[in-house]
């Protein structure tokens, strides 16, 4: 079972997985030692310069019981996803390797940066965030025909919403679970509404619908949700 984490440079791909290892969350704990991916003194993740692969042993508390699942985690360097395609062109073999991994994986978790207009550049291009998502959807269209689970999360949620309130509202509990479809509808309507049209268009053409999340390493309840969602499938493979 492999899960590939993808996303633009510095969006927080590696640190998300590290946070699930240390400290972990109430329902998800990566048991595999990931110390080599971060500086134990500062807790900060080093930038990933090449494709990293690791078999993660993950403990997840699902409504049907506690499970340990093995996830083949493929971390990708942020440069690989730059729109300039410079990395893709100069490191063709590595890029093709990543494309193959993605297309053969069971789950893809895409981390997006928050939608913010803070710089002059962003002010000039207000549609940049939506256009970025559109190009990701195009990537899924070309490479993910048989990927069963495509999850998209706007990461660093602490920068754009009241994470305590959202975590309170969408708290997963082992016995009760979570109404995933309601969570998904809420997140899509609230945080992805700018991209509504392109999401609908994608869903119309594909049998595997996209699932939406907001995550931040500053709130374990929100952070664990995409992993619980994935685990509920992977645990039964």
């Amino acid at each position: 079972m492999s899960v590939v984490v993808i996303g633009d440079r510095a969006v927080g791909k590696t640190s998300m997985v590290i946070a699930l290892h240390d400290p972990g969350t109430k329902h998800v704990k990566v048991l595999t030692d990931l110390k080599k991916y971060y500086d134990p003194d500062t807790g900060e993740a080093a930038g990933t310069s090449r494709k990293e692969e690791e078999t993660l042993l993950v403990e997840v508390k699902l409504p049907g019981g506690e499970r340990q699942i093995q996830v083949r985690w493929i971390d990708t360097p942020g440069e690989a996803w730059e729109k300039s395609k410079e990395w893709q062109e100069t490191k063709l073999a590595a890029w093709q390797g990543i494309q193959t991994e993605v297309s053969q994986s069971q789950g893809v978790l895409l981390l997006l940066p928050p939608q913010r207009i803070t710089t002059e550049e962003e002010l000039r291009r207000p549609d940049a965030w939506t256009n970025n998502l559109a190009s990701w959807l195009q990537f899924f269209n070309q490479n993910c025909a048989t990927v069963q689970h495509i999850l998209i999360s706007i990461h660093k949620a602490d920068l754009f919403c009241d994470i305590q309130a959202e975590a309170q509202r969408w708290r997963y509990e082992q016995l009760k679970g979570l109404r995933w479809i309601e969570y998904n509808e809420y997140i899509r309507n609230t945080y992805f509404n700018k991209a509504d049209e392109i999401i609908r268009e994608y869903n119309r053409q594909h049998s595997t619908s996209l699932r939406f999340f907001i995550t931040t390493i500053k709130n374990p309840s929100l952070l664990e949700l995409p992993w619980i969602h994935l685990a509920s499938y992977l645990a039964h493979k």
């Binding site: 409504p63 679970g177 995933w180 509920s232």
Partner: peptide, 13 residues
């Protein structure tokens, strides 16, 4: 299969 019903279908997936 039963656990899939519990963990997936019952949970709104």
């Amino acid at each position: 299969l039963g656990r899939m019903a519990e963990d997936i279908i019952m949970q709104g997936n």
